[in-house]
Design a protein around this nucleic acid. Sequence first.
DNA 1: TTCTTTATGATACGAACGTATCATCAACGA
DNA 2: TCGTTGATGATACGTTCGTATCATAAAGAA
Lengths: 208, 208
Amino acid sequence: MPKRVDHDERRRQIADALIRTAATRGLHAAGMREVAAEAGVSLRLVQYYFGTKEELLLAAMQQLAVQFGARATARFREAAGSAGPAGPRDVIAAILAEALPADEDRRTFSIVNTAYLALSLTDPALAIAPLVKNSGTVNDVVAAQLRTAQAAGDTPPHLDPDLEALGLMSMSAGLAISVLVGQSAIEQAQAVIDYHLRRLFPAEAVSR
Amino acid sequence: MPKRVDHDERRRQIADALIRTAATRGLHAAGMREVAAEAGVSLRLVQYYFGTKEELLLAAMQQLAVQFGARATARFREAAGSAGPAGPRDVIAAILAEALPADEDRRTFSIVNTAYLALSLTDPALAIAPLVKNSGTVNDVVAAQLRTAQAAGDTPPHLDPDLEALGLMSMSAGLAISVLVGQSAIEQAQAVIDYHLRRLFPAEAVSR
DNA sequence: TTCTTTATGATACGAACGTATCATCAACGA
DNA sequence: TCGTTGATGATACGTTCGTATCATAAAGAA
């Protein structure tokens, strides 16, 4: 076999170029030619790894979800530090903070994620199922963490974990958009998040 | 003067056709030809009333905001009924309920509004300013109503009106998207809204 | 009637897009 | 060395889009 090349790595590079382009010029404006130029490869190669644009869009969407999960995990692992495993509050706080456009990378994620969301609402080719599944999984994780916290006595037992999880994640998504359009500052968004975290975990102090 | 025709009314009809088309096939896919067909007029007439597509997009965006305001106003006027003027809770509940895709009309609004939001993030031609201004105005109204309720003793004084208003509106927007993608049911979204309304107005009972 | 406005029809142009099709070159394992 | 695979280049096809340009018909106030 000649010329060993990591196909998955190449696909990731090209998908990253799409995400970068979509963050600045829009998802619909990110054409095959522009993605190729952003990735530093030829148009022919983009066609080589992704036969169709739809295939490229789907791959980039999935990659976006993977990146988010990895970053959130890394964040609450770091938050826990050497103090044993990460507690429910650390996990939830990490997920919520990761969804806010605090820096350039997360801003890119929020923009492209919003673009995919809007596109999925009307474009049947872009399956809405995986997007919902990813978001639903995060939702379930938050709800499970709340139940754990309730069992430990850190969260008031009268709260509905599923409803609170849905409310938290929805608020986080809404706050991200609010910050993106410049309607509110990132500090305000984080303040709202912190306020509701204090409401859900009244016994513990606010970290950071 | 020959042939009296209400220009504003015609523009409204065409803009409505754009909104209807954008709700089903997407905002970027809503071309001049398709809008003309949806409105039942010729392509030439669309060009006649809106010289540019950008002009049409801006007009439809503004119309979307006007429709939302009118519907929210009508809703809390009806909620108040003959029992004098509408209270702060009625106003806030009406705004939040109006933002949820409970029926076909409101679903259309949510879809197209989300599409505009995503498009504004990357398209400089579509001024983000009016969109932020509209959303910011609603935010201020909610905050003002909260302050009024605090003065009347219906809302706990330790709450920050601005932060609560931002959180409420953001959560409402996030819930709308959650319902649109089918992640959560409209009843769940309304339950989350009701829960937070009870938190903000603990003395009053839940209406409807 | 006459003139201006409203509206339609039939195209046409240039640009951009996704996609496809040639040939060609470099690299590396067998 | 040889053959397979990765990668590039140039280019072309068909479609769709926004926009522009003709001419023309209907309708109502002056």
